[in-house]
Amino acid sequence: MLDTFVTTLAEAQRAGRRPRRWWSPRLADRVFAGAVAAFAAAIVLLTVLIAWELWRGSAAARHAFGFGFITSTQWDPVAGVFGAAPFIYGTVVTAIVALLLAGPIGIGAAIFLTELAPRAARGPVGFLVEMLAAIPSVIYGLWALFVLVPVVRTHLQPFLAENLGFLPLFSGPKYGVGLLSAALVLTVMILPTVTAISQSVLAAVPRGQREAAHALAATRWEVITGVSLPFARSGIAGALILGLGRALGETMAVTMVIGNRPGISPSLFALGDTMASVIANQFNEADSALFTSVLVEIALLLFVVTVLLNLGARLLVWRLTPHAGKR
């Protein structure tokens, strides 16, 4: 308010008393505002450019296979037959298993850190969580391949097969690498995201509401389930969707442990492949224009899905805390 008033005042004075110059300060201001607005427009342009390049690059594949591409399970690069279903399956299964594991753990940890932990512990733990979100994906992959996969092969898979082997989910040969290991490394990777965002929305619950519930003789846990969680509900949903989005697009760590063999199998022990990892593995090896175009179409699908998910998540988180989830 005040600054527009001051500008208007200055402008009025200038207009009245000074001769007009070709470069009025007003012109300089307009040029400056225009320049920074152009930079801002560049972001929108970048998004349009990504969409356009993906659309253009996938033209050959779209014409060759149409919508059937999404449901076809045939994948034979040598014969020039391509279907994306095995990769969509691998992506969805690993991401959902990761979310089912990381969701409860992340929300539980966020509840502990905002409501239960001693105040002195919150700072260091929060710092640690931020640092862990910054570890590059290739390093999670390195750890997963040399540490997690052997443990999965020698302990987890025999254990699951013995106790839950009657489920098709836990049957078949135990390679170690495969969908299960990929889902586990994704769990570890999206945990910081889910925890950090849930924590910031839980911290936004008004103190008065909590105190009111305490005053009605609710126990500490009843305050959490009756007041805090319902208040933060949509924000936590946003945190989960952002975690899901990260899991869907995660490339390097998954590529290193999933086995890279396209296929649809009911077992989590099976080898698989995801949309992101097939691009990472095959893009440089694609020997025909059609093959490249197919990989670009897979990228286009990934782009559309993650844009929609993030759009939904942002709207949910924004509704609650305008500043949450900016990282």
């Binding site: 970048l46 990504i50 697009g249 990228a299 990934l302």
Partner: peptide
């Protein structure tokens, strides 16, 4: 904000 979530491989 939405662009932040687009996978890096894309």
């Amino acid at each position: 904000d939405v662009l932040t979530g687009v996978p890096s491989i894309v």
